[in-house]
Design a protein around this nucleic acid. Structure first.
Length: 399
DNA sequence: TCTGGGGTCCTAGGACCC
DNA sequence: TCTGGGGTCCTAGGACCC
């Protein structure tokens, strides 16, 4: 294959909280907690400043608990529109350094900097430049790491947060991961860690040396292989540049559990309309409608219906939801949450031409960046990564 | 006064078809 | 007259991530 690649991971530090501090500088240095609903019941923390983390406040923690740990914190509901704008600005800054940018979430990205190494003077120089540019243009702190693939660069960035920078030299991936506890590895959540720990495996290094004969009976061949590869630092170095959604969903947790199914059905219909709106915005159509119900005891069930024909029409989707309601009603318990999910998405033929145009425009922008850099520094200053060619076929074709 | 909202990927059983 | 496999679709649920 091609040369070894260098993948940079960037992760914004306490992103939502940091944006709020930028917007309102009087918050600087104070514990700031973003998340939750207006009344502060039944919400969780989406982002906490490092000052708040000092008191034990963490993401996904119930707001009520955060309030107990840190009553003096400033609690902010948050404004996702603004965070999205800042995220797009960051994306632009990154594309100036290398055109191959994969936004992994609103506050994280991977960049293939292989082709830009010569141009900027190496991976560390690029990492510093990115941190600097982002700080200068947005005022926000971030952490950056460079490694041979996405997996290792992500782990490395997490280890040096906040405001960190770390370079993992080529070939040093496995040695770097070896001492880390399993929970630091992507894909190893509480359940997997618990199972591995029960087998006496506590670190990445121990997982590398564990025999497949031990792992396979517990996890199956496929999963066991993935676990081992992760611990060895084997990961993908291919960026996914354009992202076709696999599902579109809206859900809501009620301030108080509901028992009135007329009311629940009305709300489900509104959620369906929201989903349908997004569906059309994305020029997609759906064949599968799923109703999600979380009952008062937190048991969660889903009920799905596959349509004979794909649709983009509210009425069809709402009708499918209605059809599923009786199944959800069978359990005669209070309802805490209701949600609607659209999946089996495909491109809406009528809007395909619009999509193709947008996609071409995106590639035109990318190539313009490339041409600008080559104009300044010569053709060889920048090479496109392998596999990074415009794909005129339908999107979402897997991989 | 426990436990949000938006996603992705994987598994597994049953139906159905050849 | 008790018993094949392989493939695909549908459904439900679970683990995980930010």
């Amino acid at each position: 294959m091609g040369d070894p690649r260098r993948i940079l991971h960037i992760d914004m530090d306490a992103f939502f909280a940091s944006v709020e501090v930028m917007r309102n500088p009087s918050l600087r240095g104070k514990p700031v907690v973003v998340g939750g609903d207006p009344e502060g019941t039944r919400g969780v923390v989406s982002s906490a400043s490092y000052e708040a983390r000092h008191f034990g406040v963490r993401s996904a923690m119930p707001i009520v608990q955060a309030r107990k740990l840190c009553p003096q914190a400033i609690f902010i509901r948050g404004s996702h529109g603004l965070y999205g704008e800042v995220s797009r600005h960051i994306h632009e800054i990154l594309e100036r350094v290398a055109p191959l940018v994969q936004m992994a979430s609103i506050d994280e990205a991977y960049i293939d900097i292989t082709g830009s190494l010569k141009l900027f003077g190496g991976d560390e120089a690029i990492a510093r430049k990115i941190k600097n540019d982002i700080r200068t243009e947005t005022g926000l702190p971030c952490t950056v790491a460079v490694a041979a693939n996405k997996l290792v660069s992500k782990v490395a960035a997490n280890e040096v947060k906040p405001d960190g920078l770390l370079i993992i030299p080529l070939g040093g991936e496995q040695a770097y991961l070896a001492p880390l506890p399993l929970g630091k590895l992507p894909g190893m959540g509480p359940k997997t860690c618990q199972t591995l720990e029960a087998m006496g495996i506590l670190t990445a290094g121990q997982l590398v040396t564990a025999s497949m004969a031990l792992l396979e009976p517990v996890f199956g061949h496929r999963m066991a292989t993935v676990l081992r590869h992760t611990a060895q630092g084997f990961g993908s170095d291919e960026l996914t540049l354009d992202h076709t959604p696999k599902s579109i969903s809206r859900e809501t947790t009620f301030p108080r559990d509901l028992t009135d199914w007329n009311e629940i059905e009305t709300i489900a219909g509104q959620l369906a309309e929201h989903c349908a709106h997004t569906l059309r915005e994305e020029s997609l159509e759906t064949r599968r409608v799923t109703l999600k119900v979380r009952y008062g005891d937190f048991e969660t069930r889903t009920f799905a219906h596959t349509l004979a024909e794909p649709t983009t029409i509210d009425a069809h989707i709402i009708a499918a939801v209605r059809e599923l309601i009786p199944k959800a009603k069978e359990r005669r318990t209070r309802v805490r949450l209701i949600g609607v999910n659209l999946s089996s998405l495909s491109w809406n033929q009528h809007q395909m031409s619009l999509f193709t145009r947008e996609k071409d425009e995106k590639w035109e922008r990318v190539m313009k960046q490339v041409d600008t850099m080559r104009g300044k520094h010569g053709f060889d200053a920048l090479r496109l990564a392998r596999g990074a060619k415009p794909d005129k076929n339908k999107r979402g074709s897997g991989k």
